[in-house]
């Protein structure tokens, strides 16, 4: 399959997942910031990097799945990778107290924005390289 060699086996799926996760993270940060003065609000966090690391490392033994009811064995594929949201519990804070830290959220927001821009630029570069190859041009 042409699509497989051109897209699936490249870094494009990873970049796409990174874009997805960054956008999701910026939404959770926006939600945390919107609720900065809401009594009892618990901040939401996105978990992605650890899952991505596991998916990229691969595993020596990988189970084949020929049926939906089969248990996945070994690490999951990049295409099945999903960013998840969780509400982390800070043991130093009493429960039920708003745990949004504005400095932390703003720092994460800047970080996420840069991460997203990086992935978007990188992806754009990938596509223009492919385009250049198709049209026998040099990359500008």
């Amino acid at each position: 399959m042409l699509g497989e060699t051109l897209f699936d086996r490249t870094t494009i799926p990873v970049l796409t997942k990174t874009l997805d996760a960054s956008m999701l993270r910026s939404r959770t940060i926006a939600n945390n910031i919107a609720n900065i003065n809401t009594p009892g609000y618990q901040r939401v966090e996105v978990n992605f990097e650890d899952e991505l690391k596991k998916a990229l490392e691969g595993h020596e033994l990988q189970g084949m799945r020929t049926d939906d009811k089969h248990l996945p064995l070994g690490q999951s594929d990049i295409s099945e990778l999903n960013a998840t949201v969780s509400k982390p519990v800070d043991p130093t804070l009493p429960s039920g107290v708003n745990n949004v830290d504005i400095e932390n959220e703003m720092a994460k927001l800047a970080e996420t924005q840069i991460e997203y821009n990086f992935a978007a630029k990188f992806l754009k570069g990938k596509f223009s390289a492919l385009n250049a190859a198709i049209q026998q041009k040099s990359i500008q």
Binding site: S26, A30, A110
Partner: peptide, 10 residues
């Protein structure tokens, strides 16, 4: 202002 910053980032 924090919300505006988040808005502009998105």
């Amino acid at each position: 202002e924090a919300n505006v910053t988040a808005f502009n980032a998105t």
